[in-house]
């Protein structure tokens, strides 16, 4: 039984860090800041949660603390992504050439 839990836990760890790797890849490959933030925020959230879950299978007595770290990351990760994206947009960070539409810029243009 112990080995089965270990196996599941280990598998979750590897899956989680694979998503982290995709995040890093996205950070390097994506064409502009907003896409990079997207890649970073999503993959690190799921990746970290999977790793924490895997760790719970390996060390059940750490459960509460792992849950706390997970909840904290679940709440703060999207917030820091949003705050960063908003700050970057307000100072007019360049968007890649493929960008099709920017409603925010349009609306800001109308007001000024």
């Amino acid at each position: 039984m112990g080995t089965l839990l270990d196996f599941i836990g280990g598998l979750l760890l590897v899956t989680g860090s694979t998503f982290l790797l995709f995040g890093g890849l996205g950070l390097v490959r994506m064409p502009d800041l907003f896409n990079r933030i997207q890649a970073g925020a999503k993959t690190t959230t799921l990746g970290t949660l999977l790793i924490l879950l895997g760790m719970f299978f390996l060390q059940p007595q750490w459960g509460l603390k792992l849950l706390l770290i997970g909840l904290f990351i679940l709440f703060t990760n999207p917030i820091s992504a949003q705050v960063l994206a908003r700050a970057a947009h307000r100072v007019g960070t360049e968007k890649c050439a493929k960008t099709t539409v920017d409603r925010l810029e349009e609306d800001l243009g109308e007001k000024s």
């Binding site: 590897v14 860090s17 694979t18 982290l20 790797l21 995040g23 890093g24 890849l25 950070l27 390097v28 800041l33 990079r36 933030i37 970073g40 925020a41 690190t44 990760n77 820091s80 992504a81 960063l84 700050a87 970057a88 100072v91 960070t93 360049e94």
Partner: peptide, 29 residues
């Protein structure tokens, strides 16, 4: 090992930039 490679990729973006916001995004990761 996988997390280590991800760390290197994020580090590349952190050093490369080009904007400050890019570096912060990389720092977050």
């Amino acid at each position: 090992a996988l997390a280590g490679v991800a760390l290197l990729l994020a580090l590349y973006r952190f050093i490369q930039g080009p904007s400050d916001a890019d570096r912060v995004a990389a720092f977050d990761v």
